[in-house]
Amino acid sequence: MSATRRGVLPGFGLSTGLTVFWLGLVVLLPLSTLGLQTARLGPAQLWQVIASPRAVASYRLSLGASLGAAAINAVFGFLVAWVLVRYRFPGKALVDALVDLPFALPTAVSGIALTAVYSPHGWVGRFLEPLGIRVAFTPLGVLVALTFTGLPFVIRSVEPVLADLEPDVEEAAALLGATRRQVFRRVLFPAVLPATLTGFSLAFARALGEYGSVVFISGNMPFRTEVAPLLVMTRLEQFDYAGATALASVMLGASLLLLFAVNRLQRWTRARAGAP
């Protein structure tokens, strides 16, 4: 097959056409209204909305907490996926079921439940309080909420790939005298890295837009614990559609940029790992 061909398999037109059509209809068409609304602001007004110190503080919190939460999820998500795929222990099916619950719980319920657990009088909060650690109503609380909402992403991305890894490669490496650590670093890690990255970027993107669970636990103090989606909501409450869409567009741009970067990075790692 020549290098200029798209691929030998049939169905390019159908699958790509369907993808683009559905994507356009369900996602891009509604999102185009963001641009249209934002365009109602003049450049000066637009700048004033998106670059006000309060907005910038909220971006910083949203970005920082989302990155932190996604990083925690990448590390522990990989670990949980590993344990779920490779080891056996009693109650594994139950633990497996637990992983999806952050998606199933409405965000508001998660927020309320997390606040109940981590507030100064809560189950965990009351033990942290004497140590001087406050979770609820601080940026730490935002981090906890975002970790919770993004938790299933990495686990569920890594799990099938890890389960699908043929043992042969590991075995071959072992036969060739590789230590366990080397097998992990040279064989396992590169194989699941793309999936981990996918999970990371999805968890990050989801965290960036998270609103429902955060408002309950963050305390919403301007400049300290106010996340960007809350600012959007606030503007919406004041009938300021243009301001709301302007802020929303900034966040959308940020997450699109990150998703794009990760997709590129993934392709690069795959090329380096010499995958098919």
């Binding site: 408002v215 919403n220 301007p222 809350l230």
Partner: peptide, 11 residues
């Protein structure tokens, strides 16, 4: 003196 600014009255 306000430690928490909830988004709604019932909250």
């Amino acid at each position: 003196n306000v430690p928490v600014l909830d988004s709604g009255a019932r909250g």
